[in-house]
Computed example of a mutant assay.
Amino acid sequence: MNPIRTASVALAGFFLVGLAGCSHAPIPVAENFPYTAQKKVRSAGHWDAVAQHVVSNTLARLAQTPADGMALHVGLPSSPSAFDRAFRELLITRLVNDGKTVVERDDAPVKVSYQAQVVRHNSDRPHFVPGLFTAITSGVYVAHYLGVHAHQDAAMAGGLGYAVIADVAASQYTGGPTHTEVILTTTIMQGDRYLVRNTDVYYVEDSDATLFQVVRGPVTREYKVVSQ
């Protein structure tokens, strides 16, 4: 038998055995989720946009329940943050403008509540890589050019121009992912029954996290003076 062929067969067998061994792992292999986009809340105007989104979603589902049309009471969380106080006013404004009856009394038949939970990540946050849209666009044009053997200079330049704009908008104006997120859950209840639940997750700037948290003052203690 040809020694070179024998060595090749042995090497191929070695790789096959190695691949078979790689099909089993002592622990699960890490895998990324599919590409998704998550909005970043950076201003009070964004809070209003969030309120509009919440009201739109919750009212659409509330319309499918027997409680549709009943008076609503929007509660304020205990120990409210700056966001909590503002968000309540924004919700009431949106609800009233949508024609809903909103009352201040606590005995309203339907109650609206919400909770903002701040989540802080200590791990590194991968940033958007500038040039993604440009690279994709240029690759598409190059493939098209090679396929039809035609000059596409003008079209390619225009497409790359739009792609560069997309890169700048995606990488610079958003500021990229942050270490801080807010999980915002809105609940509509009738008695002890959950009628509607809506949960959204947003990025917030790390330095803005205190807007969504209760700022507690210094702890005061009382001391009793005992005469000797």
Rank of each mutant, 00 (worst) to 15 (best):
S8M: 09
V9E: 11
A12V: 10
F14D: 10
F14C: 13
A20F: 14
C22L: 15
C22K: 13
C22R: 12
S23P: 03
N32T: 10
T36R: 13
A37T: 15
Q38D: 05
R42H: 09
G45I: 02
W47R: 04
V50F: 00
V50R: 00
A51R: 00
A51V: 01
Q52A: 15
S56W: 09
N57K: 11
A60I: 05
R61P: 00
R61F: 06
A63P: 01
T65E: 03
A67F: 05
M70C: 08
V74Q: 01
P77C: 07
S78Q: 13
S79P: 05
S79D: 15
P80I: 06
A82S: 13
F83T: 00
F83W: 01
D84I: 04
F87W: 07
R88S: 06
L91W: 00
T93Q: 07
T93A: 09
R94Q: 15
L95E: 01
L95G: 01
V96K: 08
G99H: 06
T101M: 14
R105C: 01
R105H: 08
A108H: 03
V110E: 00
K111V: 12
K111T: 11
V112W: 07
S113R: 09
Y114I: 07
Q115K: 12
Q117D: 12
Q117S: 09
Q117F: 03
V118K: 04
H121S: 10
R125H: 08
P126D: 04
H127D: 05
G131R: 06
L132D: 11
L132Q: 14
T137N: 08
T137K: 05
S138M: 12
S138H: 11
V140P: 02
Y141V: 04
V142S: 11
H144C: 10
G147A: 15
H149T: 09
H149P: 01
H149D: 11
A150R: 14
D153M: 10
A155Q: 14
A155K: 09
A155L: 14
A155T: 08
A155I: 05
A157V: 13
G159Y: 06
L160Q: 11
A163M: 04
I165P: 02
D167V: 02
D167G: 03
V168K: 08
A169F: 11
A170F: 05
S171H: 10
Q172W: 13
T178E: 12
H179A: 15
T180P: 00
E181N: 07
I183T: 09
L184E: 00
T185K: 07
T186E: 02
T186M: 02
Q190A: 15
G191Y: 03
L195P: 00
V196N: 00
V196W: 00
R197V: 15
T199Q: 14
T199W: 05
D200P: 03
V201I: 14
Y203S: 01
S207Q: 14
D208Y: 02
Q213Y: 04
V214T: 15
V215L: 14
V215R: 13
R216N: 13
G217N: 12
P218N: 15
R221A: 14
V225M: 04
V225D: 03
V226K: 13
S227P: 03
Q228I: 08
Q228E: 10
